[in-house]
Amino acid sequence: MNSANYIFEKDLSVKSTTDNLALIREFTRSSAAECGFSEETVGKIILAVDEACTNIIKHAYKYSPDGNITINIKFDQKKFNISITDEGIHFDPSRVPEPDLVEYYKQKRAGGLGVFLIKKLMDEVKYSTLSGNKNQVVLVKYLS
């Protein structure tokens, strides 16, 4: 009836450890499913959020377990908006080149695929720096 005004909002705050990835995925899964996304799209959103948080743990906090990661999910009409905030080292994904798998293969490289995956999986991706030395990545998926 008043679906046009419906706003869904949830937050999750966790420490920067990889064992929290399962919790992050479940939080993302239940939120996206509740907002009406198909199973396939829910899977894409989960993976994008996992990759973004993995990058924060690895690059912003360099595997230090005491960092904070805050995930805010908002859904307004058709826009599913995930804001992920950290207080670690600023990470500039524009400096991550698009991976060339054949080059990776020659160099026995293992990393760098996450940023590329996030771009492929989501409709919008925006990285920014907030006041108080916080970094934020905003991932958007539209419900079609």
Binding site: Y104, Y105, K108, R109, A110, G111, G114
Partner: peptide
Amino acid sequence: ISSAGLGVFMA
């Protein structure tokens, strides 16, 4: 699977 898993096969 996430890219961390894919990376193992690449490595």
